[in-house]
């Protein structure tokens, strides 16, 4: 099993100017590593809608990679997104499903299907070919190049240990974070 904090540290060390979308139990740990205009915490936003929001960004910004770090509980809320992404593919779209089997920030209740569900099978069944399940550090390191440079749409499933992040709280309001991202993208065009 992977440790999500180690994974995030490796991601942060490798990352340059990609857009990174986070939510729920990933948002604050990622903020501790990186908090610039291209880091977008999808918190106080539509539940389950980080992956499709990222799809829209990737469509509008085809020359910039968009990486979404999506909890498995959030993914389950909007599985149709995988089909929508497959039928309107974008090369720069990378979705990571961080699978710990629980709703971490509400006390680690089990998500439906925990232990049975196979997100790789679901993503492939939705029509996405480049899907990778990663459950150990060696494989994680080996596949990092694909996450940053592979032709999308890409879906990764990280099998991670449970953790205990609280409900994330951000002093910068969602609309401020959103328009900060837009401004940074417009200025870098």
């Amino acid at each position: 099993m992977l440790n999500k904090y180690t994974c995030l540290e490796k991601l942060a060390a490798r990352r340059k100017d990609e857009i990174i979308i986070t939510n729920m139990g990933i948002a604050k740990p990622w903020e501790n590593l990186s908090d610039g205009p291209f880091d977008f915490a999808s918190v106080d936003s539509g539940m389950g809608h980080a992956a499709d929001f990222a799809h829209g960004l990737a469509i509008a910004q085809p020359n910039r990679r968009v990486i979404t770090l999506n909890g498995d509980g959030s993914m389950l809320m909007c599985l149709g997104t995988l089909v929508t992404v497959a039928q309107r593919p974008v090369d720069n779209y990378a979705l990571v499903i961080i699978e710990n089997g629980t709703y971490e920030i509400t006390g680690n209740q089990f998500v439906p299907g925990a232990g049975k569900i196979n997100y790789e099978t679901i993503a492939r069944g939705a029509g996405i070919d480049a899907v990778y399940t990663v459950s150990d550090d060696k494989d994680f390191d080996h596949k990092l190049d694909i996450l940053f440079e592979g032709k999308g749409p890409l879906v990764f499933v990280w099998k991670v240990e449970k953790a205990n992040e609280p409900v994330p709280n951000f002093p910068i309001l969602l609309w401020e974070r959103a328009h900060r991202l837009r401004k940074a993208l417009m200025e870098s065009a």
């Binding site: 539509g46 389950g48 809608h49 980080a50 499709d52 929001f53 990222a54 799809h55 829209g56 960004l57 990737a58 469509i59 509008a60 910004q61 909007c78 149709g80 997104t81 089909v83 929508t84 039928q87 309107r88 959103a178 328009h179 991202l181 837009r182 993208l185 417009m186 065009a189």
Partner: peptide, 24 residues
Amino acid sequence: VIQVSREGEAFAIASGIYLGGKNP
């Protein structure tokens, strides 16, 4: 035209498209 699987996605995708600089 971006066709979605369920209408909730449309709000999220359109938000991403707008913040990415287009006019959905």
